[in-house]
């Protein structure tokens, strides 16, 4: 979801952890947070697509965000959570280690992603937010969720 840079209002973000890195999403694109449930594996799916789950009747694909961000595959168990995110009309679940916080930030707090070598980082991280001693990486949902980015082309 494109975050309007011009908005003067404060925004709320959901911060979560994958491994030892912290990421975040605009709270407006988060529909709910659920505990892990086993997925139905989809044939010929890319490795980061873990399968689909039944979310009250909707078929929702689950993305292993660690795998998608090339942080090494996360072996899911019951301690992990799924963030159900909505982008445009598409719903997807993101498997993460844990949700840590809900924070309020000013839009100006979002800094451009520092240039680092990894293309994956450039593709999936929209920007970074400095918060006390932490760095929150703002996820670009449309790049992470399969289908949406392709459809835009």
């Amino acid at each position: 979801m494109a975050v309007p840079r011009t908005a003067s209002d404060l925004r709320e973000i959901v911060a979560f952890r994958i491994g030892n890195q912290e990421f975040c999403l605009d709270i407006r694109s988060v529909r709910e947070i659920r505990s892990w449930t086993p997925t139905t594996v989809l044939p010929h799916a890319p490795p980061y697509v873990m399968g689909v789950i039944n979310l009250r009747g909707a078929v929702v694909p689950i993305i292993n965000l660690a795998e998608r961000l090339a942080l090494g595959a996360l072996q899911p168990d019951t301690r992990h959570v799924i963030i159900i995110a909505v982008i445009e009309t598409q719903i997807a679940g993101l498997l993460v280690d844990a949700v840590s916080d809900i924070l309020t930030v000013a839009p100006t707090a979002v800094q451009a992603t520092p240039r680092v070598g990894s293309e994956v980082t450039q593709a999936f991280v929209r920007g970074v937010i400095a918060m006390e001693q932490r760095m929150l990486r703002l996820i670009d949902l449309s790049a992470v969720i399969p289908g949406v980015g392709d459809r835009d082309l």
């Binding site: 989809l42 044939p43 010929h44 799916a45 689909v52 009747g57 078929v59 929702v60 719903i91």
Partner: peptide, 14 residues
């Protein structure tokens, strides 16, 4: 029947 297209896209054979 639940469509897959909206959530994920078409899967060959499914």
């Amino acid at each position: 029947i639940k469509g897959l297209e909206n959530g994920y896209g078409r899967i060959p054979g499914i």
